[in-house]
């Protein structure tokens, strides 16, 4: 099944609604809780990144019986140095964002940790597409 969510820009109070909705559905599908956590956490991180850095965007989610594919698309500034961004603790978030408990530089590393497959397409000033795949049986 295919799902579509709009991701708001700069609205941290409502950030994470898409991933929590997807999580609820995976529970109703009876997916292994460990797999649900992998999908929910990696999607949450990508969603938050789109809110903080990407100026909002959308989430396209496809669930089938053996896997979930999550695509988070934003039209933000892109990631200047992807290799650097993959390092734990590296962040370009503003002080304001960090004071709210976000932007600790763990987003991409956490995505890498929890996703079974992670693909990041990013172009300066064009935006970023993060694709996360989590398999239900492995």
């Amino acid at each position: 099944m295919n799902l579509h969510y709009e991701i708001p820009s700069d609205d941290l109070a409502h950030a994470g609604e898409a991933s929590s909705s997807v999580k609820k559905m995976l529970v109703q599908l009876g997916i292994d809780p460990v797999r649900i956590k992998k999908a929910a956490v990696s999607m949450y991180e990508a969603e938050i990144n789109a809110v903080i850095h990407g100026g909002g965007g959308s989430a396209e989610v496809t669930i089938d019986s053996d896997k979930i594919v999550i695509r988070i698309i934003d039209n933000g500034p892109g990631i200047a140095d992807l290799e650097l961004a993959m390092q734990e603790g590296y962040t370009t978030a503003s002080d304001d964002i960090r004071e709210m408990g976000f932007g600790a530089g763990m987003g991409l590393p956490n995505m890498k940790r929890y996703a079974d497959e992670l693909d990041i397409q990013t172009r300066p000033d064009k935006g970023t597409i993060v694709t996360i795949v989590v398999y239900f049986h492995q």
Binding site: M1, L3, V27, Q28, L29, G30, P33, S65, F136
Partner: peptide, 23 residues
Amino acid sequence: AYKPVLKLDSDIEKAMKKLETLE
């Protein structure tokens, strides 16, 4: 043990159909 009381069906294909209908 985990009690998956929210699961729609024990067969994932059926659960998926039910979830689509639910939505």
